[in-house]
Write a protein that binds this DNA or RNA. Structure first.
Length: 589
DNA sequence: GCCGTTTTCGGCCCGACTGTTTTCAGTCG
C-alpha cells in the first residue's frame, strides 16, 4: 500500500467514527495522522525499514496508529475498517454532501426514517416526515430540499487557485467600492496559496457591518444568500462557490484576518501555544486567560493584548509574523520560534522563464510574439522549449526543424542585442521526450548544441513504478539535460501522478546537479509543495517555469512562485533567480 | 488516539449562525 492509500484509510475511519458519534479527539487523531502521512515524501515502508527511524516519531502517530500502519503494509487490510464499514450504509456518504446535514442529523434520518437513497430523502421531505423529527422542523426540511441538487451533482471539485483568484479579485473590487468598508482583504486557502480553493473568505474592517454585508448581497455575482448574521454573511457566488464575509472593528482586523486565513490546524496549534502562555486567541484579539474565562462574555473580558494587525497576534505569543503560505500546521510555529523561517522567494526574484512553446509545435504564438511578451514582462532571459518529434499530436520537432528554429533564435538574439543592454536573451531549448522504451527523443549530438534542455515524460504513464523511475533517472544522468519537466505528471482534479519513486528522483537530481521543475501551470503545480520542500532540503535546485502555450501563459509565473513559497523555498533554491551566466554554469563543470 | 521542562492521566482552539429550542445542539470553518 502506498502512503496515500493508508492516509485514505485513516480519513475513511475518521468519517465512519464521526458518523457513529465516537470521541471527537479520537477522530481528530485519525485525521491528523492522515494529514501527516499525505505530506510525507518518503514511503512509510522505507521509514519502517530504516533502523534509525520509527513510525512513532511521525507527528500525531503513536503506538496504536503505528501498529495499524504496519498491519496495512503487511496485509493491505485493516480489520477495524472492514468491521466498521459494514455498519454504515452507503447512502450516508451521499447525504453528508447535502449542505447543512452533518453526521448527527444524517444518523437520525437513516435510523428513524430508514432513508436508503437521496430519492427516499426527497420523498420523506415532501411528505413532511422530516419536519416531524425531533431537532428538525419546517425550515430544515425545506433547506434539505433546496440543497439536494448540490449532493446529486457529481461535479463538486474545488476551484483551481487561479480560478478562485479571478472571482475573488472581482469581489474585492466590489467590496472596496462600499463607502463603509475600510480595510478589505481576502483570506482562507486563497491567501495561503493552496493548489485548490473550496470557498472564498473576505475580512472587512468597518464601523457598520450591516452596510458592508448588504453591499455583498447586492453584488452582481451573488446568486443566493445562505446565511446572514450580525457580523457574518455567506452567499453563493459565481460557479457556485461559497463566499464568507466577516466584518469586524478596527482593533480586531488583524486577529480576524489571522483567524480566517487559517489553516484550521495552524490555528489550533497557535491557540494551544497561547493557552500554554496563559493567553487565549480568538478572532477579536488576544486575551489573558482568566480562571473562569468561559463564563465571562467577550465584552467583559480584559483588554485585548493585540489584534489590530496579524503581527500583534503572533507577537503576543512570542513569534514573528508567519507568511500565510506556510500556515499549514506543520512545523512552522517551531521554526518561527527559533527564528528559522526562511525569506521566501518572490515573483520579483525570478529573472527568466525556462519552459514555453511556440506555434512551431502546439503553442498559439510565434517565436517573435513570445519574446516580445516576455520582454514586456521584464524577463531577462527565456528558453524556447517546443516539443520533440515523439509528441506527434503537437507536431513535435525533429532534429532538422529544431536546428532551423535555433538559427532563427540566433538571428533574433543578434537583433535584440542591437536594441541595447536592457534587452532579453533567448535560449535555444527543447522539451525532449523520455521515450517509453528508455532514452531520449533526440540524439545527444543535437542536445549538446542546446542552451537549455527540459526532459519530460508524456507517454507510457501507466508503466510500473520501476520502469517510470528508470526512464527519469536516465534523463537526469544525461549530461545535456538541465531540468526534468513536470516530474510527476499529475493534473489537478483530472489525472493522478504517474507511479514514480520521487525519493530516488530527488536523490539522483541532487547527485547530478540536474534541476527539477516547479511547473507553474495552475493545473499542474508539479512538483507539489511536499516534493519541492524535500528537493530543497536535498540540495536540488528547482526551476519555476510557466510551460506557456501562448503569450498570456507567461503570467502564470506567480502561481509557480506561490507553490515554491508553500514549500518554504528561498530564491537560493530556485535556479531561474540567477543571472544568466551563473544559471548556465550550473550543471556541468 | 495522542501527548507531556508542572503531567503516563486528563486534557485536547474557538466562535457565529440557524433552527428548534425555554437553554442548546448541530453545523461550519
Amino acid at each position: 500500500m502506498t502512503n496515500s492509500d493508508i492516509a485514505a484509510v485513516f480519513e475513511q475511519l475518521a468519517d465512519i467514527l464521526e458518523y457513529k458519534g465516537d470521541n471527537a479527539f479520537r477522530i481528530r487523531a485519525y485525521r491528523g495522522a492522515a494529514r501527516t502521512i499525505s505530506g510525507l515524501v518518503e514511503s512509510l515502508v522505507s521509514i519502517r525499514n530504516d533502523p534509525q527511524r520509527s513510525l512513532r516519531n511521525l507527528d500525531g502517530i503513536g503506538a496504536d496508529l503505528a501498529s495499524k500502519i504496519e498491519t496495512l503494509l503487511d496485509t493491505g487490510r485493516l480489520p477495524l475498517l472492514d468491521e466498521l464499514t459494514a455498519e454504515v450504509p452507503a447512502v450516508v456518504w451521499e447525504m453528508l454532501r447535502v449542505p447543512g446535514l452533518g453526521p448527527r442529523k444524517v444518523k437520525l434520518l437513516v435510523e428513524t426514517l430508514a432513508i436508503d437513497s437521496l430519492d427516499a430523502l426527497e420523498l420523506a421531505c415532501q411528505e413532511g416526515r422530516v419536519a416531524a423529527l425531533k431537532g428538525f422542523g419546517e425550515k430544515t426540511q425545506q433547506s434539505i430540499l433546496d440543497n439536494l441538487p448540490f449532493a446529486r451533482n457529481p461535479i463538486h471539485s474545488r476551484l483551481l487557485w487561479l480560478e478562485a483568484d479571478g472571482i475573488l479579485q472581482e469581489l474585492l473590487v466590489w467590496i472596496r467600492s462600499c463607502p463603509e468598508a475600510r480595510r478589505v482583504e481576502g483570506a482562507g486557502s486563497w491567501r495561503r496559496g493552496c493548489e485548490t480553493v473550496g470557498d472564498l473568505d473576505v475580512v472587512v474592517e468597518s464601523q457598520r457591518p450591516a452596510a458592508v454585508m448588504e453591499h455583498l448581497v447586492a453584488w452582481q455575482g451573488t446568486a443566493a444568500v445562505l446565511l446572514q448574521g450580525d457580523t457574518k454573511t455567506s452567499v453563493r457566488g459565481p460557479r457556485n462557490v461559497q463566499i464568507d464575509l466577516r466584518v469586524v472593528a478596527e482593533e480586531s482586523f488583524g486577529a480576524a484576518l489571522q483567524y480566517f486565513t487559517g489553516s484550521q490546524e495552524h490555528n489550533v496549534r497557535l491557540r494551544t501555544r497561547a493557552r500554554e502562555l496563559g493567553l487565549s486567541i480568538n478572532e477579536y484579539g488576544v486575551y489573558r486567560l482568566e480562571p473562569a474565562a468561559e463564563a465571562v462574555p467577550r465584552s467583559a473580558r480584559g483588554a485585548s493584548l493585540g489584534g489590530q494587525t496579524e503581527e500583534e497576534v503572533y507577537r503576543a505569543v512570542g513569534l514573528p509574523w508567519i507568511p500565510p503560505e506556510l500556515r499549514e500546521g506543520r512545523d512552522e510555529l517551531v521554526l518561527a520560534g527559533q527564528g528559522l523561517i526562511p525569506p521566501l522567494v518572490k515573483l520579483d526574484d525570478i529573472r527568466g522563464d525556462l519552459h514555453m512553446h511556440t506555434s512551431a509545435t502546439d503553442g498559439e504564438n510565434t517565436l517573435v510574439e513570445m519574446v516580445r511578451a516576455a520582454l514586456e514582462r521584464g524577463l531577462k532571459y527565456i528558453a524556447i522549449t517546443d516539443h520533440s518529434q515523439r509528441v506527434s499530436m503537437a507536431r513535435g520537432l525533429d532534429a532538422s526543424r529544431l536546428l532551423r528554429q535555433w538559427e532563427d533564435i540566433d538571428t533574433l538574439n543578434q537583433s535584440l542585442c542591437a536594441d541595447g543592454p536592457a534587452g532579453i536573451v533567448v535560449l535555444k531549448g527543447i522539451e525532449v521526450d523520455m521515450l517509453e522504451k528508455g532514452g531520449l527523443d533526440l540524439p545527444d549530438e543535437v542536445l549538446r548544441q542546446a542552451d537549455w534542455v527540459v526532459a519530460s515524460l508524456h507517454y507510457g504513464q501507466q508503466q510500473p513504478r520501476d520502469r517510470i523511475t528508470a526512464r527519469i533517472l536516465e534523463a537526469i544522468a544525461n549530461p545535456w539535460v538541465r531540468v526534468i519537466g513536470h516530474p510527476t505528471g499529475r493534473l489537478i482534479n483530472r489525472r493522478p501522478p504517474y507511479d514514480v519513486d520521487i525519493e530516488a528522483v530527488i536523490a539522483a537530481a541532487a547527485g547530478n546537479g540536474t534541476c527539477l521543475e516547479i511547473n507553474a501551470n495552475p493545473s499542474r503545480l508539479d512538483l507539489n509543495e511536499h516534493h519541492a520542500a524535500a528537493a530543497g532540503k536535498a540540495g536540488v535546485r528547482m526551476v519555476i517555469s510557466t510551460d506557456a502555450h501562448d503569450t498570456s501563459g507567461l503570467d502564470l509565473l506567480r502561481c509557480g512562485v506561490l507553490q515554491a513559497r508553500r514549500a518554504g523555498l528561498s530564491a537560493a533554491n530556485i535556479a531561474n533567480t540567477l543571472p544568466l551566466a551563473e544559471l548556465l554554469a550550473c550543471k556541468r563543470g
